[in-house]
Nucleic acid binder design. Sequence first.
DNA 1: CACAAAAACGAACGTTCGTGCTATTATCTT
DNA 2: AAGATAATAGCACGAACGTTCGTTTTTGTG
Lengths: 217, 217
Amino acid sequence: MPVNTAKAASRPSKGVRTRESILRVAVDLASVEGLEGLTIGRLADELKMSKSGLFAHFGSKEELQLATIEMARQIFVEHIIRPALAEPEGIDRLIKLCQGWLGHVEGKVFKGGCFFTAASLEFDSRSGPVRDAIADTMKAWLGTLTRAVDAAKKARHLKAAIDPEQFAFEIYSLAMGANWALQLLDDRNAMKKARENIQQRIRSAATPSCPPIKLTK
Amino acid sequence: MPVNTAKAASRPSKGVRTRESILRVAVDLASVEGLEGLTIGRLADELKMSKSGLFAHFGSKEELQLATIEMARQIFVEHIIRPALAEPEGIDRLIKLCQGWLGHVEGKVFKGGCFFTAASLEFDSRSGPVRDAIADTMKAWLGTLTRAVDAAKKARHLKAAIDPEQFAFEIYSLAMGANWALQLLDDRNAMKKARENIQQRIRSAATPSCPPIKLTK
DNA sequence: CACAAAAACGAACGTTCGTGCTATTATCTT
DNA sequence: AAGATAATAGCACGAACGTTCGTTTTTGTG
């Protein structure tokens, strides 16, 4: 048994590497076909490997779905949350979070728009571990957004009357609406309008001492 | 061939009646399992009829999906749009539309929350007649909302600066957010918060001469 | 290099999917 | 009530689903 408790994270074993490459494809497939439409045979074809070989990595479809969600979560963190953490707490970080989210929709980080918004609505009237994993991820995301609003408030960038939870929810609703309009209605201006929309909403909540608010690409 | 062009809409034939009862169940099933998860076998079981017997009413799964969408659209119109048309043009009708929408989510007019929001995100990255039917319905709904805003503007209930399309989109985004929070996060206060949210947003756009704005159940 | 462990394969399982037929009921019209 | 028509059931199909199994190939290590 290869003792992997050592500090060094050397080149990962074959199994780990394949698993990861599977999941990268799985995330894209699921973002288009849905987590239920994500099929083992289809996935195996895409990767030119056997169904059984692929299956062995997960042991069940549910495990595959959970692993896919986890991979999507990592990609989401990497593309949206981590860049925002580079900004100082306050309005700038909040803006960066919004920009990151809108950008990831527009830039097709996931093939079929926002992975989690789609997954949310697919599983919202079911129960079980998959739904829970999705809900947990979304709660965490809303939490991040809420904390960013709260920090901006504490930095006196946003008015004291702002309820962080409510405000985060408002912003995210507008963002989801933009994703919806872009994906379903093919509204090419959806993103521009969403940026203006959110920008305006944040400005309306900003204090006079708040630095200028501008949402760009 | 029974000539049905006559004025009298007498008792519909057996076929029509069965078809309708199938579709009523189909709508609920699809709102929970999705339009793709809506399966002919499952639907037949639910109705205690044979797969083939049920199938004959539609000829293909796609036709079944389209018919289900059409039925959902009718239910939607009946529950949300028609009651609002009873109100005079202006702010009251707009409010009634919002109330109706939020009410239909809360009151489980469709078992799994808003049928069309779920369908939208399920089909938004595909192509074909089903996606088109969903998109058309949603465009029509946004159009209705936009016209209501515009009328309220013309009645001097809403400020002249309001862009009807944009404003309708904002309101609907907040409503979708509420549906999302209720369904996925089991947020029992989501609806109350959404009502306050939308109420506040409308108030902020209202003129001094606008009648009082109050969103209730 | 050898050899154990891990990974991938190919074939098959039992189900369910959507979709055809044909036969049998039920419904409507004259 | 009879005859025509429409509605439903029964059965079978090929394909795809998730899953299991035994075998073969690849990988990593002493």
